[in-house]
Design a protein around this nucleic acid. Sequence first.
RNA 1: GGUCCCAUCGUCUAAAGGUUAGGACACCACCCUUUCACGGUGGUAAUAUGGGUUCGAAUCCCGUUGGGAUCACCA
Length: 478
Amino acid sequence: MTIRTRFAPSPTGYMHIGNLRTALYEYLIAKSEPDGKFLLRIEDTDQKRYVEGATEIIYSTLKRVGMNWDEGPDIGGNYGPYVQSERKPLYAEYAHKLVELGGAHYCFCAKQEADEEKDEEQNMKFEDPCKRLSLDEAKKRVAAGEPYVIRQTINKKGKSKYHDEVYGDIEIDYDELDEGVLLKSDGFPTYNFANVVDDHLMAITHVVRGNEYISSTPKYNLIYEAFGWTPPHYVHVPPVMKDAQHKLSKRNGDASFQDLVAKGYLPEAIINYIALLGWNPGTEEEIFSLEELKQKFSIERLNRSPAIFDIVKLTWMNGQYIRKLDAESFFACAEPYIRQVVSRNDVNIKMLAHVLQPRIETFGDIPTQIDFIEQIGEYSNDLYINKKMKTDVAVSRQSLEYALNRLETIAAWDNETLFAELKALAEEKGLKNGQIMYPVRIALSGKETTPGGATELAVILGKNETLSRLKAALQKLA
RNA sequence: GGUCCCAUCGUCUAAAGGUUAGGACACCACCCUUUCACGGUGGUAAUAUGGGUUCGAAUCCCGUUGGGAUCACCA
């Protein structure tokens, strides 16, 4: 039997990290097998929560990280349609059938408010009076046009039992299960029902979802049982947390996939990082491409405890990915960020990108690192005093003069030449390298720390700008 | 509250009865070095707790504590 998994988000907004990780695991489980199929199904049965454009975000996110689906709303497949609102008649049909099979009943009760108030003290279970109605009588009322819902009927006693691929054997008393609504009065199914019907009809073999469904899974099994269907393998996964107490959630303003991308994180790094939040390969490697994850992933190595999302480690990992980029790719990614603060075109931005690559962990780090390029800011002459470099104001003034004279004579404006020349200059004058390099770097940047050294900055700024900044510095020191 | 689930460095995790409890991030130190980074080397740091079982427990069992989930015409 070939594996078929599904990612079934509801289009309620942005793609958050926990969701994306679930999709990843679903994708990897399917793709760990050559013929495995990963499908996309949109669960839009709650019209109140529908958000315009949310589906597009789902598509673009999945595409961006390379998790291509084999069947889905946009590309079709043999088990469509893949949008639940388009399957509406199907659910009603199956719901009525389930009533006939004794797995559900018509219910005419007024909507139960989601208030906390009810039965808090007595903790009594809701006992549906409509359950006692005879089927004939109920059908008459339905035929008469009375509003109704179809509610699950649970008469079993004792303990329900099922196996979860991650949590092992789960036992829950049937008395704990409540008879939830399966088909709403608007004719739409609830998740509890649509989910079962669709997973069966779409021949899903592995259901992967958050562990908050662990305790309601027996209810779904009852439905499978009533229809005579075989339940899928269950893979419940622990949540991704913001801290020890709270799940990561868009509501709290926690970073979504697109937020991270906007901040300059690479999709590959995000995927790599979240794969490791609840799973490990059993080796000490931790940098994996999606392709490698497909090879190494196994359900057995999934964790049972929640994992806290650590942006610091993701940031480190993103730095690893940035460093591995070839020069052209890095430049393509970095350029927009460089252009946020550098508009002049006499700046060698290729060289700028070159010095930036080992120095940033996210592309968002770029603007603050290069704020002196466009225009040098105000700075104090105290910057020229550096004990380790053995420079002070007097030494610096002298060195800058030497450097200016030497640089004016140089035509080949590349780092190797410039570095060799200034190094030779230091030797000639009986100075340490740093006594030349340090003041030059300060004169060019006005900053204590810069991406790149003196000669690299000179290359980035170009000969004209370099000479003019040196002259300005000399004047400032006079 | 009932029920279910979870518990190893601050964080992500390894160790499926016998390890000096390993790795990674972060942090600290040193090395490299035209500053800062990158890179390299080393260091600090954990089995929540009490009982069992066993020659031997992070690992198995029970209790405690702590945390989470769930009890909607949301998914």
